[in-house]
């Protein structure tokens, strides 16, 4: 370990967790056709904490993340077994509406994917669909507050009508975060949100995540171990479809229990 200098999230600001389990996974397996990609993962995610998923490429961390708001449903050959709960309700239960689930569990993707519409339209897209806004003033309010929260308001407030695709990569990603926030989700899933961004844009997003914690439960997949250390309260290490270990971030980076975790974070493979 020694040579690596890490900054840990809890050195900046303690996370006010309520100690309540927000999401839980029990024996979750994911199959692509006949191929088992995730082998029985168990995990608890506490309310308002930030969990980072780390692990080598193809270890299943993104696949698992996508189970949490059923984005895997969009892939025809993908099948999920086991149980995932949100506030103790099974999200794969037939009675649960996936639309409602995704309004509660938002998602930010690897590559910034603003819609080919104006910045304003990008933000109000979700609220309009869900019937959250009734008037122009509601919309203006939601646009301003979401962009404020995403730290983008100052940069774009004078060009809300220009296309979202015209922004820089980092701005686009913050727009996508603002878009997710606009529907007031409880959980935000982030799938390597900084992998397509330069270091400066990355640090801005990391600060943003830091701002958001406490109000939102966040699960973030990352390739970057320093990032995991900087932003997360807990870290989960995935390897070849298994959840190897999950614990306090500081614990995992300073005192990993599993040999594989240690090998990975000390850079022996990855």
């Amino acid at each position: 370990m020694g040579a690596m200098q890490m900054t840990f999230s809890d050195e900046k600001k303690p996370t006010p967790t309520s100690g309540k389990v927000k999401m839980a996974a029990r024996d979750v397996k994911v199959f692509y056709g006949d191929n088992e990609a995730i082998h029985g993962v168990n995990m608890d995610i506490m309310e308002n904490e930030v969990v980072a998923f780390i692990g080598p490429s193809g270890c299943g961390k993104s696949t698992f993340l996508r189970c949490l708001n059923r984005m895997n449903d969009t892939i025809d050959i993908c099948r999920v077994t086991g149980k995932v709960t949100l506030d103790e309700r099974d999200i794969y239960d037939k009675s649960l509406d996936v639309v409602q689930l995704r309004a509660q569990v938002g998602m930010v993707f690897q590559k910034p994917n603003p819609f080919p519409k104006s910045i304003y339209e990008n933000i109000v897209y979700g609220p309009k669909l869900h019937g959250l806004v009734n008037s122009k003033s509601d919309m203006d309010e939601i646009v301003e507050s979401s962009l404020q929260r995403a730290g983008l308001w100052k940069e774009v407030k004078d060009r809300l009508d220009s296309p979202g695709t015209g922004l820089s990569g980092g701005q686009q990603q913050r727009l996508c975060i603002a878009r997710a926030i606009a529907v007031s989700p409880e959980v935000i899933l982030m799938d390597e949100p900084c992998s397509a961004l330069d270091p400066i844009a990355t640090s801005i997003i990391e600060e943003l995540i830091d701002e958001l914690k406490g109000s939102y439960t966040i699960a973030i997949v990352t390739h970057n171990m320093q990032q995991a250390a900087r932003v997360s309260d807990k870290t989960a290490f995935f390897h070849m479809g298994d959840l190897v270990e999950i614990s306090e971030t500081r614990e995992i980076f300073t005192n990993p229990k599993d040999r594989r975790t240690e090998d990975y974070i000390t850079g022996r493979f990855g």
Binding site: D97, V99, Q100, A103, Q104, L129, G131, L132, S184, S215
Partner: peptide
């Protein structure tokens, strides 16, 4: 509070579901 807002929003989402489906 954020929690209250979320409650109201969840109700509105639930209300829109039937029409949207």
């Amino acid at each position: 509070s954020l929690a209250e807002k979320r409650d109201i929003m969840q109700q509105r989402v639930a209300k829109s579901l039937k029409r949207r489906h």
